[in-house]
Design a protein around this nucleic acid. Structure first.
Length: 504
DNA sequence: TCTGGGGTCCTTGGGCGT
DNA sequence: TCTGACGCCCAAGGACCC
């Protein structure tokens, strides 16, 4: 723990939903819910307007629709969020070389290492300046926590939400934490929280009073020690700029449970290919192959196999995953399948030869899959929701859930004709709701809904006033897909883009 | 009405070599 | 040769985070 509150935690407010509101002016001030739209989807982020209806992260989307039937429901556009995130992280790196991103919308910054602040006043000033810079660069608001440790800075930014800044002065940590619920502390989830509650511990102050030995007895050595230290406000973990990935995995939840063993095998092969695609693009190989199976009753099991050396060979991973699947009883149905690789190593050429030998010795049947992946044949009945939830990209590329898909209902009560999750494919034209388009006459807009051969587009762009809605035939030659426009600056004023840019 | 996807870390228990 | 302690690796599961 340092003397000055010079560790900064930035947390962007309702990040995905805020990006959607910034890029679609008609959604500003409205309930926006970003998440999976399929029958088994959950909410990733809800705008503050939606939260007033009781909608929150991790809630099943179906439940959110009941609580907030007039909200705008959108599937995540990770590439857009990533690009916004990169701008924000760039601003953080301008403050200090020590920036530790936790996710697209969160990071720690060591202000002392950047020599921008050595005391409370300077730290507060840097935090305020950062919030203003983020707003100017992206149009989005973030909350800032400042404290002498990572844990406290995170607690502070949570308290500062939305759009605020809170600094916890050194010396006040214990008093600050004492009245807060134990769930405030990172690492205390529903299970530990309930465990503690049954022991009569609900606040951080009570946690500190319980003492180290008692906590270790209750939740185990590592967790108990950690909890006790946190309760005292002690945390000396440094801000770490670079973190090596430890595993790579992909998983799919199916709209309908899978029963057919042949289909299940096919899905596992597909997941193995996608996983290797990710592994390769991250420049890694790995030694342990993990198969994950969630059954009809939500029970989850994993099976793993450790190879003699690291691999990034799709054939090797496919075969290992298939072997692991043979040991799993799938009668009753499977709702989720996943394939992962852990024990990562930096990619080296020798790995290929070593694996090739091991492979040949095993028997040598696996065919190589090209870098572009392999359009594994879809089962006769496609998983029912592939088009809607982005599962099942036809190539092995590390695709995000297909980017700009979504459906909006009743955003303004006018014009939305689509039903949730609906998209139209006609004459080879595909208009996922929520995606960006450009019309030769009306300019940039986004697909608000689609159905019965028509597509409804709202013509607006970041920074514009809420736009008007127009409906076209799905094969209108003047309408084409486009890339998202920047939220602020460069092209935000509606500059012309080359036609066809980013056409899918 | 159910409960995503991509991760990390910890615990437990068995096998094995010393 | 047997046994126990110990350390290490591996497999599996679980809690938690965003």
């Amino acid at each position: 723990m340092r003397a000055a509150p010079t560790i900064l935690h930035l947390d962007m407010d309702a990040f995905y939903a805020s990006v959607e509101q910034a890029s679609k002016p008609s959604l500003r001030g409205k309930a926006v819910i970003v998440g999976g739209l399929g029958p088994r989807g959950v909410v990733a982020t809800a705008s503050y307007e939606a939260r007033r209806f009781g909608v929150h992260s991790a809630m099943p989307t179906a439940q959110a629709r009941r609580l907030c039937p007039n909200g705008a429901y959108l599937t995540p556009r990770f590439r857009l969020y990533q690009s916004v995130s990169e701008r924000v992280m760039g601003l953080l790196r301008a403050l200090s070389p020590l920036v530790e991103p936790l996710s697209l919308d969160e990071a720690f910054v060591d202000l002392e290492a950047g020599e921008v602040a050595f005391d409370s006043a300077a730290a507060r000033a840097a935090g305020e300046r950062l919030r203003a810079d983020i707003m100017a660069a992206t149009g989005l608001s973030g909350s800032v926590g400042l404290a002498g440790s990572k844990m406290l800075a995170k607690v502070a930014s949570e308290e500062a939400k939305p759009a605020g800044l809170l600094l916890i002065e050194p010396g006040t940590e214990r008093a600050h934490l004492a009245p807060m619920t134990v769930r405030t502390l990172p690492g205390v989830g529903p299970v530990t929280g309930e465990h503690l509650r049954r022991a009569g511990i609900t606040t951080v102050g009570e946690l500190a009073e319980a003492g180290e030995d008692e906590l270790i007895r209750m939740v185990g050595r590592s967790h108990g020690l950690g909890l006790y230290r946190m309760a005292l406000g002690l945390d000396d973990r440094p801000v770490v700029a670079e973190r090596d990935a430890k595993s790579v995995s992909v998983e799919d939840t199916f709209d309908v449970d899978l029963h057919d063993r042949v289909r299940i095998r096919g899905e596992v092969q597909r997941l193995a290919d996608r996983c290797v695609g990710r592994l390769r693009s991250s420049g890694h190989s790995g030694r342990t192959i993990v198969l994950k199976v969630r059954r009809y009753d939500f029970s989850t099991l994993t099976r793993s196999e450790t190879l003699r050396g690291p691999t990034d060979d799709p054939g090797v991973v496919r075969e290992a995953a298939a072997r692991l699947l043979e040991g799993v009883d799938t009668t009753g149905g499977v709702r989720l399948l996943g394939v992962g690789v852990t024990g990562l190593a930096d990619y080296t050429q020798e790995d290929l030869f070593a694996q090739a030998e091991a492979q040949a010795e095993a028997e040598g049947g696996a065919e190589e899959v090209g870098p572009a992946g392999d359009p594994v044949a879809e089962g006769p009945e496609s998983s029912g929701g592939d088009a809607a939830d982005g599962a099942g990209t036809p190539d092995g590329a590390p695709a995000e859930p297909a980017g700009a898909e979504g459906a909006v209902r009743g955003a303004e009560g006018d014009g939305a004709v689509g039903t949730p999750g609906e998209a139209v494919i006609a004459l080879g034209r595909f208009w996922p709701a929520g995606s960006d388009v450009r019309h030769a006459v009306y300019g940039p807009g986004w697909v608000q809904g689609s159905g019965v051969g028509r597509v409804t587009v709202r013509f607006e762009r970041p920074g514009s006033a809420p736009g008007r809605v127009r409906t076209f035939k799905v094969d209108d030659p003047e309408l084409e897909p486009s890339d998202p426009l920047p939220l602020v600056g460069e092209d935000g004023g509606g500059g012309e883009r080359p036609r066809g840019a980013g056409a899918a």
